[in-house]
Design a protein around this nucleic acid. Structure first.
Lengths: 167, 167
DNA sequence: TTTACTGCAAACATTTTGCAGATGT
DNA sequence: ACATCTGCAAAATGTTTGCAGTAAA
């Protein structure tokens, strides 16, 4: 829906296959997939490379779009299946944003943490969650609730975008 | 998807029209709609009555189901349009739950607050948000972020369900 | 060589839209 | 009376599935 997401400074398929994939951030993700016992297929490599080279947060539609553009031989179904797989393995995390249709994904190697998304440049920062969890546990207890999980997303404006012209 | 949601102890259409609607919780919601300048049509009355008499949290599918059962003359489109309307007016709040398809709604008259949902009985409690906001602002600042909004959902187990057999 | 994975196309689920007619105020 | 609202059916959207063929290990 945002349209230009992840496609703005994409590399060519050649550069993609050689450069980024061997030592770019995609390599780490590929290793994760491998370690989890899944096959490193051509479509998965391509999708991971696209994800690693794009915005930290994206929707399935945006990814679908990028895949169509950069590796058009990959089918829709494979993209969805790969998204599910990557989420299951923990490479991606599903998040919900009211303004972005429904599901969005963020690249996320670590176990569980929170994101703060810049409303202007889409930059995503992680932040420590210890304090959040402690507070929630405390608030829950006050109502007799035993807190078992939570889902938190924070929107704001990063340092750069506070200085820059707002759009 | 939960299937039995909101339909278990539903009243007959007659009781619905006379009793609950005049002095049940639906009356408050109807007044809100009226105050906002919208027409109190028959479908809207029926839908609000169903909502007021059902679980505090529900999906569009569950509501659609209840409407079909209790006021089958109302069309799907009207249900969705009404959900949008109620959300816009602030009678409902859209929330996201991974396990419940995508959109869920909670009845919610007040301006902005958080919900804690019992994973067992689906009971929803509100809790004060002052502390949450303060904490988020503090955490954001630490990263140079100016926090502008957030979305928080907490899952847990309410007092009753901690005692009762888990399911 | 074996089984996981893929593309395709069709199915499916969910939500939106256009429009003629009904209804609230 | 007249604008808002409704039901219907069709369309748009987003995601999943069955299956025959392909490719990773």
């Amino acid at each position: 829906m945002t349209g230009d997401a992840m496609t703005s400074d994409a590399m060519t398929s050649d550069a993609m296959a050689s450069d980024a994939m061997r030592r770019g951030p995609a390599a780490i993700l590929l290793r994760q997939l491998d370690n989890a016992g899944y096959r490193l297929t051509e479509p998965r490599r391509a999708i991971l490379t696209i994800i690693a080279g794009g915005h930290e947060r994206f929707t399935s539609a945006e990814l679908l779009d990028s895949v169509q553009r950069e590796a058009s031989s990959i089918g829709r179904a494979t993209v969805f299946r790969t998204l599910d797989l990557l989420t299951a393995v923990g490479i991606l995390q599903r998040v919900h944003l009211d303004d972005a249709g429904c599901h969005s994904y963020v690249v996320c190697g670590r176990a569980h943490h929170h994101h703060i998304v810049c409303a202007n440049c889409n930059r995503v920062m992680d932040f420590e969650q210890g304090e959040v969890e402690a507070l929630l546990a405390r608030l829950g207890e006050r109502h007799g609730f035993k807190v078992e999980g939570h889902h938190l997303e924070v929107y704001g404006r990063c340092q750069d975008c506070q200085a820059a012209t707002h759009n």
